[in-house]
Design a protein around this nucleic acid. Structure first.
Lengths: 153, 153
DNA sequence: CCACAACCTCAACTCGACTTGAGGTCAACT
DNA sequence: AGTTGACCTCAAGTCGAGTTGAGGTTGTGG
């Protein structure tokens, strides 16, 4: 076995640094770590130190959230990254590809909606549960408590 | 002044009926009423009776929510409907027009995102706060507690 | 050597959008 | 008259995605 210790020439990052560079609060870092989305090492004094790679993970998290994807799904995606090495460009590309379908269908929905909105809202068809605006692919038909999700699935 | 009492030939609707026809839970009707999104009259026995128009209001609420618009903003919009008469087609059209800009820019964002996603996520630019994917129009830059909103403003 | 910022943990709070439950009433049918 | 089932109110719970605060530790500049 060849030693693949990809030691970066850079120092590990402190929580404050990561927070500043990634544009999230330190409390969010703690939260992401608790939720298994990122990880850290500790110094002798028990303070967190992050690999620089965490910045890219956080970017991915935030961009994905912007797409309306839940942390749970994002974690699943991140879990599929190799944990024995720093992910490559190709790894990240694969992940983003995974959102592609979501994104496409979401754009589609919004376009349908836009093109029908003014014509349709006034017309009364919205009273019908079968209206394609009101219920395209059941996207509003979520059940149970908690906030309604914006993307189906 | 001409009497414009648009009396519908239909009976008022009971909570159960509205819930079934609009596809929402009765508890949600109570909630919407508490929040000032819909209203009702009461029978002698203190039970709610809804004007049929409530169906269209609820449709508008649900469709708007699907666009990622908060109940607070939806209430503002609904508040601009005339409360002295049943809203006309034109009234509804005006409201939906109001979402139009939101919708357009949201679609725009998603398209930009889609077209850059695979190229960009792997490239490292996401580490920069200035990346247009990571932070287009500050849409992720919300502060304070509570769930992050999906639409800016 | 000490002040002070930055860090730690853990529990509790927030916010939006509802739901659930307890305890009681109303209305229609048998 | 009694039994459903649909209704009522009000308080409390839920879920996701974090934030806030109390109380204590670490590490760095003056």
């Amino acid at each position: 076995m060849v030693e693949v210790m990809t030691i970066s020439k850079h120092q590990p990052l402190s929580p404050g640094e990561v927070a500043a560079r990634a544009g999230v609060a330190v409390s969010a870092l703690h939260f992401y770590e608790r939720e298994g989305l990122i990880e850290s090492e500790r110094t002798a004094g028990n303070q967190r130190r992050y690999h620089r790679d965490v910045l890219r993970r956080i970017s991915f998290i935030r961009v994905s959230q912007g797409l309306g994807i839940s942390l749970a799904r994002i974690r699943e995606a991140l879990d599929s990254l190799p944990d024995d090495k720093v992910p490559t460009k190709a790894d990240w590309a694969r992940l983003s590809q995974g959102w592609r379908a979501d994104l496409d269908s979401r754009i589609d929905q919004l376009q349908r909606l836009r093109d029908n909105l003014d014509g349709c809202i006034g017309c009364g068809c919205l009273s019908l549960k079968s209206c394609s605006l009101y219920n395209p692919e059941d996207w509003l038909a979520t059940t149970g408590p908690g906030p309604r999700r914006l993307l189906r699935r």
